[in-house]
Amino acid sequence: MNIVVCVKQVPDTYSERRLDPGDKTLDRASADGVINELDEYAIEESLKLAEATGGTVTVLTMGPEKATESIRKALSMGADKAVHVLDDSLHGADAVQTSAALAAALDKVGFDLVVLGSESTDARMSVVPAMLAERLGLPQLTYASKVEVDGSAITVQRQAEYGYDKVEATLPAVVSVVEKINEPRYPSFKGIMAAKKKEVANFGVGDLGLAEADLGLAGAATEVVEFTPAPPREKGVVVTDEGDGGVKIADYLASQKIL
């Protein structure tokens, strides 16, 4: 089975994340870049499925030069090769544009299964997997907490408020995973060494046949009008429990008319 796993490099949640005051896009230089956490679960699931079916795993990312760090991480975990959609004219792409570029790259690479994390920790939109299913005309098997493949049949448990839905489809398909699904492996020393020799192909917008007018900030259907730091929350009252902590909270809630 030919699996493509999509990954995204994001600013580390622990570093100070901000927008660039100039073009109001994510300031990627100000924060350390890391692979999006849920994408590690997507990689793990892809590797497991490939191991079980004798398939290959190709990493696909879109992002600036720096995103090669995340490609290397995925390769060191065990993915076979990678495709990097790398083109300055993509800078400032929103989710609609990102899904267009990824769909074009997926068409070019070919696949039986696309796997993604269900959310990125920076934009947190959770829309790209569904948008890919829409663009590719394929089954949307998102928020999966369990994936089973049997020949060309694929079944997932789609996590929901009330529990889960069992969803069935036929390959090819688009899957997104939640963190409950597995425990991602750590790259081994051997894996890290091997990753250095694995093939990484670069695609530009010309290779993908994307129309210039639709690209980047200028072609985005959404825009940030302005942004401001959130006003800090006013420091509240903190007391030490002297046997009446519960009563004190009840008094506070009553004073706020919550109780």
């Binding site: 509240g236 903190v238 429990d241 519960g246």
Partner: peptide, 20 residues
């Protein structure tokens, strides 16, 4: 926090529950 209690939740929370 708008209001905080430094203490053992196993004491504070049941007391709050009774009070509510």
């Amino acid at each position: 926090a708008d209001f905080g209690v430094v203490g053992d939740l196993h004491q504070v929370v049941p007391q709050l529950t009774e009070e509510v």
